[in-house]
Design a binder for these strands. Structure first.
Lengths: 368, 368
DNA sequence: TAGGGTCCTGTAAGCGCTTACCGGTAAGCG
DNA sequence: CGCTTACCGGTAAGCGCTTACAGGACCCTA
């Protein structure tokens, strides 16, 4: 209708300027709302922009003002053998990413995502390449060794999720300790169980180490007997949880009265394995999870677990990264409160809506 | 240990060059594997790069050679009222994105993602901003009107998913027609059901329109009676499916012998609603889904459905976008084959592994 | 009416990288 | 031994945008 459409030679700010009969500086100012252009100038520029469908080039902009408005997010994608329902873990990561995005959009940033397979070799190189395209990086759990992170962190701002801060990188995590503590107290004090077990997660996960340690400390403090050892090593998966139960039982070991699982998926596998052996939950053995994934409430019995504010975790991670990017500051280690969600797998009655206040350690103890 | 670390003044190719004692052009060549630098030159550059932990700036690179190596991906995030399990839809999108990423990584591209809420207002502006940061865009279903897409498409290469091509944009979708056809034939010919119904998806979804039309055409061709009308309007959600069944029943209508659902989630709601009324699946009414989401096989009864190659869809979308970006070509409308997955909700026996070949229309008919 | 402010707007200098182009050196050949 | 050819490597010109700086127009005051 109008022009025969530019010969694909990329529309630039010069095209807009000449069409509007002003200089490129004016176009730039109008587009960025700087200075105080005359109403007429602004109008002419806007009109030219509209007519041309002009969108400023992000790369040029980034180069010019040293800000790409992009954060890189790196995570591991499942891979290997997918136990049924293992795909849940996608969701977990996805929810966090959604949170990051929410934070990012508030500042006009976008997410540049890159997943890494478990057996990809050039991980460090891939991450470095991503770093070049972003203002900062957010790394999900278990992406890089501590030295890897440290090295990365001095080329670009880095925030890790559920890890631990290094001299140069920041970290955001949930309050695992309080969560485990609330769980143990609920089981020992409220229910009176005297023996506990903990099906652990991947040995190389900081989250797991913290949970495991908190379990031992708190159980002992509460006066409960604990069952531990290599037989209790799971790997955050349902298959891992099932295996632990099976091998424990096959070895003729007596199960403790209550079993805490490193996460909900593990609990799912444990409950499944228990059901196969005819062991009732919670009548014979009480089970608890960690995470409160969406399906947790639909299990049989509904799972008592710890809810982590995952979306908030993501948003917080962005905020911290952002402050590091813009001001250079940023809190080194941020801990978010968790919440005890009591359902039935611990032995509570179906509709016991509330639970004695003292148990909601994290909820009441860390309200901001 | 080594240097006191540059004063944060961004490391550039000049720093590398001077440290290696060569020119910036040489550094660039080494880094990009162009020309044929002397072994010694290459080595010195690499060493300097290593010592400095240098990563070239993506923006500068993009600006210089006109390629950002970034594709923008836009999708709607749930929002509103989340029916239980509705979060599944995350997964759906996520799997496609994973596919896009796989394709992208082969070319050294990364994904710049941006989700849009259902009630965000400035959608077009947000997408335009994203366009400025990417070489091309992939839009998930129902992101923009046809004119919106057309307008966008003449600023940047655009590929839509499950939509329809416009003069300027490309599209990739699954073979809905064949899927519905296989389903209808299986129900009518193999099972002998004479009356069918179709719980539709969102009215504004091209996928849904195609499925709906294919349903009517094929059912009539197979000689079955079909039940249609506004009462059958679902919206791709479990809640929608449940509502359709409930209102149909409340109105005293007799249900057809078999009901096809616009997607698996809808089927989930339908089965749920049916169970509440004491109607048995598949004995009283046979149900089928579409998509084959992971939980489909775990429903009661396991859901007969159509599997869409979602990851492949994503990968294909990237490939097409890439060819448009690099060569300007690209197939306008790409159709991927689907596969009939027979389980029990259609009335088949639990372990009937295989099904007569002629039903797997898409599988056998479109093998590449 | 001239001097001094105020506002706007235009000119031009980069941001960090790629690459065309050209000069210098070494190797090949007669 | 001198000239051609090949091969490397350096210089410099942008890529599209932001922004410091300076110039012009206009208004106010004396």
């Amino acid at each position: 209708m109008t022009e025969p459409k530019k010969a694909k030679g990329t529309l630039t700010i010069y095209d807009v300027a000449s069409r509007a009969g002003v200089s490129i500086a004016s176009v730039s100012r109008v587009l960025n709302g700087l200075g105080s252009p005359r109403a007429e100038t602004r109008e002419r520029v806007m009109q030219a922009v509209r007519e041309l469908s002009f969108v400023p080039d992000g790369a040029a902009r980034a180069l010019s003002n040293g800000l790409k408005e992009v954060v890189g997010v790196v995570f591991r994608r499942g891979g290997e053998e997918l136990f049924e329902g293992e795909d849940e873990s996608f969701l977990f990561i996805d929810v966090i990413n959604r949170g990051i995005e929410v934070g990012a959009q508030r500042r006009g940033f976008d997410l540049l995502i890159s997943s890494v397979g478990f057996n990809d070799d050039n991980v460090a190189a891939r991450i470095a390449a991503l770093a070049g395209k972003a203002d900062g990086l957010i790394l999900h759990d278990r992406m890089l060794s501590a030295v890897g992170i440290a090295r990365l962190a001095d080329m670009v701002p880095v925030v890790t999720l559920a890890g631990s801060p290094t001299p140069a990188s920041l970290n955001v995590r949930c309050d695992n300790e309080s969560g485990i503590r609330a769980l143990v107290r609920h089981l020992v004090i409220d229910h009176g169980y005297r023996s506990l077990g903990y099906v652990s997660g991947r040995a190389d996960s900081p989250d797991n180490r913290t949970r495991s340690r908190a379990f031992e400390t708190e159980a002992v403090a509460a006066g409960a007997a604990i069952d531990t050892g290599p037989a209790w090593q799971g790997n955050y998966s349902a298959a891992g949880g099932a295996t632990v139960v099976a091998s424990l039982l096959d070895a003729g070991r007596k199960l403790p009265r209550a079993i805490l699982c490193a996460n909900d998926q593990t609990a799912l596998g444990v409950i499944h394995a228990l059901a196969q052996r005819g062991i009732r939950v919670p009548q014979d053995v009480a089970i608890t999870g960690f995470d409160d994934v969406p399906v947790a409430r639909h299990l049989h019995p509904p799972l008592t677990t710890i809810r982590q504010p995952m979306q908030e975790l993501g948003a917080k991670a962005f905020d911290i990264l952002y402050s590091r990017i813009s001001a250079g500051g940023g809190k080194a280690d941020t801990v978010l409160p968790v919440e005890l969600i009591v359902r039935e797998s611990c032995g509570c009655a179906p509709n016991s809506k509330s639970v004695s206040g003292t148990d909601l350690v994290s909820k009441d103890g860390q309200r901001r």
